[in-house]
């Protein structure tokens, strides 16, 4: 009897945003399935993935909402920002336009999430260096100017994908430890399971939609 799926201390809500075709769904798929999805169809609205990771010995369940990049879904996807603890903002290093649109995505992210939301900038398709259209340095500078974490990744090779998700979680966890992220505040995008991780195999883990947890999530939507 495995306690695996229930055995975690926190749930972090993530949202992945960025222009159409930058590889948001592929990043998610690479992270959750460790596989590259070659012919990824356009996301319709929003999709959902989870994975349990470990940060500082704590098991954390990531609940990731992958949004459609197409403009026609903007009205829908905007409803999913609220209560995200982490926002992964993705652009395509081979298409400058996707990089140019980052400021609009960032505005959305800032307006629709809470101030503690960790925003992580990912330059995807890092494997296509020959077709590169956005340099690492300028993106790095953009990230610094806007206080974002940044990495170039490749959903195809899996390079830095794990790192991006983990670093975001580490930063969120650090915010919790600092006390800058108030677990009791709704909208934090984090749910704590007080008797989760430590209890071990036979132990109990709070349902992710427990009435208490739900309350938080509610407001987060």
């Amino acid at each position: 009897m495995s306690a695996g799926p229930y055995n975690y201390s926190y749930i972090f809500k993530y949202i992945i945003i960025g222009d159409m075709g930058v590889g948001k769904s592929c990043l998610l798929h690479q992270f959750t399935e460790k596989k590259f999805m070659a012919d990824c169809p356009h996301t319709i609205g929003v999709e959902f993935g989870t994975r349990i990771i470990e940060v500082a010995g704590q098991k954390i369940k990531l609940q990731i909402w992958d949004t459609a990049g197409q403009e026609r879904f903007r009205a829908v996807t905007r409803s999913y920002y609220r209560g995200a603890a982490g926002a992964l903002m993705v652009y395509d290093v081979t298409r400058r336009s996707t990089y140019n649109h980052l400021s609009s995505w960032l505005t959305d992210a800032r307006n629709l999430t809470n101030p503690n939301t960790v925003i992580f900038l990912i330059g995807n398709k890092g494997d296509l260096d020959a077709q590169r259209d956005v340099t690492y340095e300028e993106a790095q500078q953009f990230a610094e100017e806007n206080g974002l974490m940044f990495v170039e990744a490749s959903a195809k090779t899996g390079e830095n994908v794990e790192e991006a998700f983990l670093e975001t979680a580490k930063k969120i966890y650090q915010n919790i430890q600092d006390g800058s992220l108030d677990l009791n505040a709704a909208e934090s995008g984090v749910q704590h399971k007080p008797n989760g991780g430590q209890a071990g195999a036979g132990g109990r883990a709070t349902l992710n939609n427990s009435s208490a947890g739900q309350t938080r999530e509610n407001c987060s939507c």
């Binding site: 809470n114 505040a185 709704a186 909208e187 939609n209 739900q214 309350t215 509610n218 407001c219």
Partner: peptide, 24 residues
Amino acid sequence: VRRGALSRNFLHSLTHLSPTHSPI
């Protein structure tokens, strides 16, 4: 039980004021 929780939470999120976001 889940029905109860869901409808309760739904109404809560519609009307409950949180520090960072207004109710739906």
